[in-house]
């Protein structure tokens, strides 16, 4: 950019400057129009649920009393949702890394365990896995608390999918890096810990962020078991009890959406910082 502005000596603009400015104007214009359109969609939706009559068409009327009374109750699910998600993503990252490392192993049982785990989890529905931990295990005398079972199911499931991320991360570290470490005299474990993993993990941060955001929404599935009082559980509970499912679910949707927007914003900051640093 500075190269272009520097080129404008004494107010005379080169053709390059003019083209560049035109392009920038166009980009700014596009962004502004997208923003305005978002606003319009938003207003339309608000109007749609406002209960107003317009040209003889009556829009949907929401029960505001119910909303005011219950919004706090549903909002209290947010910490639960985040707790489940944070614990589950932690477990998932650990499992994913182990599975990815297992795929590099030359020891057959370890390689097999890693592929077996990934294959089994990816071959069955998440919904089933969650119920397995809540409903099937107790039959064997294993009773897990709601939170624990939910975290275990989500963590195991996401771990299997995220192993691909770590696999790609490990693959992104060039052979020359390992060779340089080995030539210095590092053992395989030192090479992994000091040279390969730090680079692989940095590579994995943005996609892990995406997975975390997805997790906050998939965590709603554990509400089905009735034991974790997160956003979705609370919404369906009050919604059903008072037959105001529409209001309850709209509130829950807004909470999830806001949370996603916030997390996406945090993620973009982290990514910007990462790309500004070394490498």
């Amino acid at each position: 950019m500075s190269a272009f502005t520097k080129g404008t000596e004494g107010g005379v603009k080169s053709q390059g400057d003019l083209l560049f400015e035109a392009q920038q104007r166009q980009q700014r214009g596009f962004k502004r129009n997208v923003g305005v359109s978002w606003g319009i969609f938003f207003l339309i939706i608000i109007y749609f649920f406002s209960g107003q009559s317009f040209l003889g068409i009556k829009t949907i009327e929401l029960n505001t009393d119910f909303i005011v009374k219950n919004i706090g109750f549903i909002a209290l699910g947010l910490p639960q949702t985040l707790l489940v998600s944070v614990l589950a993503i932690t477990l998932a990252m650990t499992l994913a890394l182990l599975a990815a490392l297992g795929r590099l192993s030359t020891i057959p049982p370890i390689y097999a365990l890693s592929t077996f785990y990934v294959s089994l989890i990816r071959g069955t529905p998440l919904y089933l896995q969650i119920f397995f931990f809540f409903l099937a295990l107790p039959q064997l005398g294993i009773v897990l608390t709601g939170l624990f079972a939910g975290v275990l199911a989500l963590g195991l499931n996401y771990g299997a999918y995220m192993s691909e991320i770590f696999r790609a991360g490990l693959a992104s570290v060039g052979k020359g890096q390992r060779e340089a470490a080995i030539a210095l005299g590092m053992t395989p474990i030192q090479t992994m810990r000091r040279v390969v993993l730090p680079q692989a993990l940095r590579f994995a941060i943005p996609p892990v962020g995406n997975e975390f955001i997805a997790m906050t929404k998939d965590s709603a599935l554990v509400s089905a078991t009735g034991f974790v009082h997160e956003v979705m559980w609370r919404a369906t509970r009050v919604g059903r009890a008072q037959f105001n499912n529409l209001e309850a679910l709209i509130m829950a949707a807004l909470f999830y959406w806001l949370m996603t927007l916030l997390l996406t914003y945090v993620q973009s900051i982290i990514e910007a910082r990462l790309s500004k640093g070394d490498r």
């Binding site: 890096q177 210095l184 940095r202």
Partner: peptide, 29 residues
């Protein structure tokens, strides 16, 4: 390996470490 030092065509410096960290990595680790 401790008695040999190697220099590669592609340098193979560790990109996540500063210059100094690159150089002390061997002795320390």
């Amino acid at each position: 390996r401790l008695k040999t030092g190697m220099v590669f065509q592609e340098f193979n410096l560790f990109p996540h470490m500063s210059v100094l960290e690159n150089v002390i990595e061997g002795p320390v680790t």
